[in-house]
Design a binder for these strands. Structure first.
Length: 428
RNA sequence: GCGAGCGUAGCCAAGUGGUUAAGGCAGAGGUUUGUGGUACCUCCAUUCGUGGGUUCGAUCCCCAUCGUUCGCCCCA
């Protein structure tokens, strides 16, 4: 009888890995909070139509990567492949724009895409993202990029690079699209098979083909930047100026296009070279048309999303996980002592200390061995002798110093005890 | 969806068509029946992802399947 395994493309995040996640999330909460962002939690599944309209029917994500199913009421539902559409849906549904000003929202949660699993790519994965809804000001673009930058830096990641581009508004892009098709059509026979197919389906995406010959042909291709209207050009330059003023370095990449249809003007990716084929850890841009597309008022917006698994992979490559800080490991042996040990553990916990209680009942020698491995600052020892006299032995594991004191005395001055624990922990 | 590699204990890992599947780490017990981090001893896979086939016999060969890794596609 074989045991059931986690399904393909999903995985368990075991306690050993959790410190990395908590580190990433804690810093995000801090930095997003300081930037006046508020958390939003939207459903994990939505009506299929929301994603089809939001991301574009022709995109790969919609056409072949969605986890869609019918529920018992015959509704077509889809596990969210990304969360911008869901956040925008909530924004429109609850009329958040009526609250005035701009809405700054962030989210964290599981996303689902039916793809072939690979390093840094699962079918269920987690994204942390933000959406700044309601401002067309170039400062909004620069602000969201600056927040991403601060966050990734505060996490401790190095060697990241920001790729930055503008794809203009719809009209700019239409003109460019025509020019690109006009340029590539004579070379069609020399393009790789995928690119030939994309020439009619989604020509902009030919730009990031990895095929060498295609890239060679593209060297002389027209640039999107030559097709920006004067207004689009101006806002592109403004965002760049703001980034420079903030001291954020970026690489202009006029070949950077994004896979989802809703982007306008600013698009960017933050990439790492340490992840193999999945280089992008954070990506986003402006999406001025999406909110109206989904039934809301015409509202400019900009945002990004970041894949947590990829950040965890990068962190694991560069640092050891933080060791858990345990204050006390409590060993006990004998009927009276064991009964008292639980009470003592609870009292210490209620006073604010962390305590691991050894439940094995095995020989003291074994319990000490576990105490040592627990990483605790001190071992508390409770045998029947101590139980009878209402005392406890405290042994500081790093120094080996041991003392006997009344249980009441241990808790008489929590601040002093906390001080001792901290001293022991910093020494260890 | 396409191509290639891999799958031996919790982890790392050797191995061979033939009655008993190395080793290391971790774990459990003991030397030490109330004192850890060292040392020594003992234990820890009727079984080699799963199912089928070839064979007198398969962990090893073949097929299928599941999972995984790398690349493509695509994306965070």
């Amino acid at each position: 009888m074989s045991a059931i395994q986690a399904t393909r493309g999903t995985r368990d995040i075991l306690p050993e890995e959790i410190p990395y996640w908590q580190h990433i999330e804690a810093i995000a909460r801090e930095i997003l909070g300081r930037a006046a962002y508020q958390e939003i939690r939207t459903p994990i599944f939505e009506q299929t139509d929301l994603f089809a309209r939001g991301m574009g029917e022709a995109t790969d994500v919609v056409s072949k990567e969605m986890y869609s199913f019918q529920d018992r009421g015959e509704r077509s539902l889809t596990l969210r492949p990304e969360n911008t559409a869901g956040v925008v849906r909530a924004f429109v549904e609850h009329n958040l724009q009526a609250q005035g000003g701009i809405q700054r929202l962030w989210y964290l949660g599981a996303m689902f895409r039916y793809e072939r699993p690979q390093a840094g790519r699962q079918r269920q994965f987690h994204q942390l993202g933000l959406e700044s809804l309601g401002s067309a000001d170039p400062r909004a673009d620069a602000e969201v990029i600056a927040i991403a930058n601060d966050w990734l830096q505060a996490i401790g990641l190095k060697n990241l690079r920001l790729e930055f581009n503008s794809i203009g508004d719809r009209t700019d892009r239409q003109h460019y699209r025509e020019a690109l098709i006009a340029y590539l059509t004579p070379h069609k026979a020399d393009l790789d098979a995928d690119s030939q197919d994309r020439l009619t389906r989604n020509p902009l995406r030919i730009l990031d083909s990895k095929d060498q010959n295609t890239q060679k042909i593209l060297q002389a291709a027209p640039s999107i930047l030559s097709y920006l209207s004067p207004e689009s050009q101006k806002r592109f330059e403004q965002v760049q100026q703001l980034l420079s003023d903030l001291g954020i370095s970026y690489r202009l990449n006029d070949r950077l296009v994004r896979g989802l249809d809703y982007y306008t003007h600013t698009v960017f990716e933050i990439q790492s070279d340490d992840l193999g084929a999945q280089a992008t850890v954070c990506a986003g841009g402006r999406y001025d048309g999406l909110i109206a597309e989904l039934g809301g008022a015409e509202t400019p917006a900009v945002g990004w999303a970041s894949g947590i698994e990829r950040l965890v992979l990068l962190l694991q490559k560069m640092q050891k996980p933080p060791v858990k800080a345990l204050d006390f490991y409590l060993v006990s042996r004998g009927d009276r002592a064991e009964a008292q040990a639980l009470k003592l553990a609870q009292t210490l916990r209620q006073t604010g200390f962390s305590v691991e209680l050894d439940l094995s009942g095995s020989a003291f020698g074994k319990q000490f061995k576990r105490a040592d491995r627990s990483g605790a600052a001190a071992c508390l020892i409770l045998g029947d002798a101590e139980a009878d006299s209402q005392t406890v032995q405290i042994k500081w594991l790093a120094s080996g110093q041991q003392a006997s004191l009344a249980q009441a005395e241990l808790l008489a001055n929590p601040d002093a005890l906390r001080q001792q624990v901290q001293t022991a922990q910093t020494e260890a």
